[in-house]
Structure formats: structure tokens, C-alpha cells
């Protein structure tokens, strides 16, 4: 438009992701919308009526949307409009058929703006300028350090499991596998980002994955040792749960990064999946092992230098086992009760 001051509104076509496809200027009211060629704005959408809606000023000069007879109707900011509705001063989202339009209105009062000597009035509703997404923000140094930590921990773990003098090829799975797996992992998430945000954000996901992986590696290496050193079987049993939660948090961080518009939904879904997964797993373990953990005892043995807790006389442990028989008898009673109830179903089949 040659004279921007004549522009009273701007209509923008939005695609599914909310990006603007094209826009037209509006110089004057009223404005008619529809598929027919005599409309001010022609919408090329088979789900739009020939004359679908009008935007006009009412008696008191306010802008209002008028829905004309149509099969699919008009939605103003998500709400159906049956006859007329006032337009918000800042503008609105309109949906006609499958077409999504954003109507941006000039909000400053024209007479005052003219009087104020061309000092360009900034409409209050306009969001402040956003900084560009900076791919090097925060630097890559911290993630790279984390990555180095992950690799070193993996190699240390590998060193411990190898016998002295092992062939150097034994290192290859870790040396190549960890970076490769990381690349596949981040590549997968970057593809998802590409799908939802149209950018292959490999570095962003790498920045998320590395610190979390370092935390997970540290926890899974140190947790059992700590539990053994303190002689806390409960802590050892909780190790699996901690690992699960850390994995869930990692997934959560990736998903939030992939779907930034749906953060609350992502959190809810991840939390629900984690709770359901843990619940199901616990139920299955309980069924097989009569306990919430499959391993019936703490299997990590403390190294002599790290053995912080003392010993008890063996007779004390033998005393501790006294209640076990009673607990087991209750289990047996429960099992035979279950069997009696199940007899009717089992017998013909066997």
C-alpha cells in the first residue's frame, strides 16, 4: 500500500502451524468475505459460502462482524457467531470454512493520531520485538563438556568390565557406539522438530540430551555404590525408579523443545505415561515376585574402603527372619483361596 496511513486493517491468511501465508490490506469498511467474486476479499475455499460474512461499523462506530447465512458458519476467536459480534479492538482470529484469517486492526484513534503530528503511535497490543533464536546461546562448551563426561563414564564402565590386557577392539563398541547412539537419538528428535517447527534442530536437542545423560550416567554409577556403602537396601531398590524418572525427564525436555506451543499438554502426557507405566510395571512385578522390586536383595557389595555401616551379630539377622514364615503363610493362604475360587474355571480345561 502506498499510503500506510490509509490502511485501517490487515487480513492475514494463516496455515495449520499459524504461519502467515499471505495478507491483504484493508482501506475502508465495510468488508465482505466470501467465495463470490463481488466480495471485497475473495476466499478460495469450497467450504465457504458465496457471501459468508461482513465486517462493518455499527451505529456507534464500533466494528462488528456479521455472519451471513452459510452452512459452516463463522468463528470469532474460536467461538461461533450466529448473527453479529463486536470485534475486539486489537483484532481477532476468524475462521470461515477451513480458512483461518487473522484480522489486525489499527487501534489508535485516528483523529488523535493525526493531531499528534505524525509521531507514530505504537499500538499497545503489539508484542515487543523478539530476539532471534540464537543457536550459539549459552555456548556449546557446557554441553560438550557434558558429552565428554558421558563418554568418559562410558569408557570407565567399559574399562571396569574388561579384563586387563583386553584387545583394543573391545573398546570400539563404546567408543563408536555412544556417539553414534547419541547422533541417532538427537537426529530422531531433530526430525520431529522439523516436522512440527520446520527446523532441523540437532544442536538444540544435543544441548538437552547431553546434560541429562551425564546426570543419568552419574546417578546409575554412583547410586548403587552409595546404597551399598550406607547399607540401605531401600535406597538400592529405589535405584530403578530414579532411573525411570530421569529417563522420563529427558523425554519431557525433548518433547517440550519439539512442541513449545503445547508445554502443558506435554507435561501432562509425560506424567500420565510415567505414572501409568510405573503402575503397570509394579503390578506385574508384584504378581511375580510378591514385591515391588524383582531383585529380592541388594546385590551390590560395598568396597571395603567405602563400607560405612557396621555389622551386627549373625544371630540378629537370623532373628530377623522369624517373621518371614508368618508372612509367607499368609501368602499361601491367599494363594489357596485364589485357587479354590479358580477351580470352576480350570477343571474342564485341564
Amino acid at each position: 500500500m502506498e499510503r500506510p496511513e490509509d490502511r485501517v486493517a490487515l487480513i492475514e491468511w494463516l496455515d495449520r502451524d499459524g504461519h502467515v501465508q499471505r495478507s491483504v490490506d484493508v482501506a475502508a469498511w465495510p468488508l465482505s468475505l466470501g467465495r463470490a467474486l463481488d466480495n471485497t476479499v475473495v476466499l478460495d475455499d469450497p467450504h465457504v459460502a458465496a457471501h459468508h460474512a461482513r465486517v462493518e461499523t455499527d451505529a456507534s462506530g464500533r466494528l462488528q462482524l456479521q455472519a451471513l447465512p452459510s452452512r459452516n458458519g463463522v468463528k470469532l476467536d474460536g467461538k461461533p457467531v450466529t448473527t453479529t459480534a463486536l470485534l475486539p479492538a486489537a483484532g481477532a482470529l476468524l475462521q470461515l470454512g477451513t480458512t483461518r484469517l487473522r484480522l489486525r486492526l489499527r487501534t489508535e484513534i485516528r483523529s488523535e493520531a493525526r493531531a499528534a503530528d505524525a509521531t507514530p503511535a505504537v499500538p499497545e497490543s503489539l508484542a515487543p520485538e523478539k530476539p532471534l533464536p540464537d543457536d550459539t546461546a549459552g555456548g556449546l562448551r557446557a554441553p560438550l563438556l557434558a558429552g565428554l563426561g558421558v563418554l568418559l563414564l562410558a569408557l570407565a564402565n567399559q574399562w571396569v568390565t574388561l579384563d586387563p590386557g583386553a584387545d583394543y577392539t573391545a573398546w570400539l563398541p563404546t567408543l563408536l557406539g555412544v556417539p553414534l547412539a547419541l547422533a541417532v537419538w538427537c537426529g530422531f528428535w531433530a526430525l520431529l522438530s522439523k516436522l512440527f517447527q520446520h527446523r532441523f534442530d540437532f544442536a538444540g536437542h544435543l544441548r538437552i540430551a547431553l546434560p541429562w545423560l551425564l546426570v543419568m550416567a552419574l546417578v546409575s554409577t554412583l547410586w548403587p555404590q552409595l546404597a551399598a556403602a550406607l547399607a540401605l537396601p531401600r535406597m538400592s531398590q529405589a535405584g530403578g525408579l530414579v532411573n525411570t524418572l530421569l529417563t522420563a525427564l529427558l523425554l519431557h525436555a525433548h518433547l517440550r523443545h519439539t512442541l513449545p506451543q503445547h508445554r502443558r499438554a506435554v507435561t501432562t502426557v509425560v506424567a500420565a505415561v510415567v505414572i501409568a507405566g510405573i503402575g503397570l510395571q509394579s503390578a506385574l512385578t508384584w504378581r511375580r515376585h510378591d514385591s515391588l522390586v524383582a531383585m529380592p536383595y541388594m546385590s551390590t557389595l560395598p568396597m571395603p574402603a567405602l563400607r560405612l555401616s557396621g555389622t551386627v551379630p549373625s544371630a540378629e539377622l537370623v532373628q530377623d527372619m522369624a517373621p518371614l514364615a508368618g508372612q509367607l503363610a499368609a501368602r499361601v493362604a491367599q494363594a489357596s483361596k485364589d485357587e479354590e475360587e479358580g477351580v470352576g474355571e480350570d477343571e474342564p480345561g485341564e
Binding site: 547399607a231 557389595l301 560395598p302 563400607r307 555389622t311 551386627v312 551379630p313 549373625s314 508372612q327 499361601v332
Partner: peptide, 19 residues
């Protein structure tokens, strides 16, 4: 039934054991 276990670090003749 599934096992029920007790565990402790015990000493037997001053020898520290995990049992």
C-alpha cells in the same frame, strides 16, 4: 511362593559378611 528375604552386614568370628 515368591521369596521373602532379610539381609544385613553381619560379623561371624569378627569376619564382616554380607548375608
Amino acid at each position: 511362593t515368591a521369596p521373602r528375604c532379610v539381609e544385613a552386614q553381619v560379623s561371624s568370628g569378627a569376619l564382616p559378611l554380607k548375608a
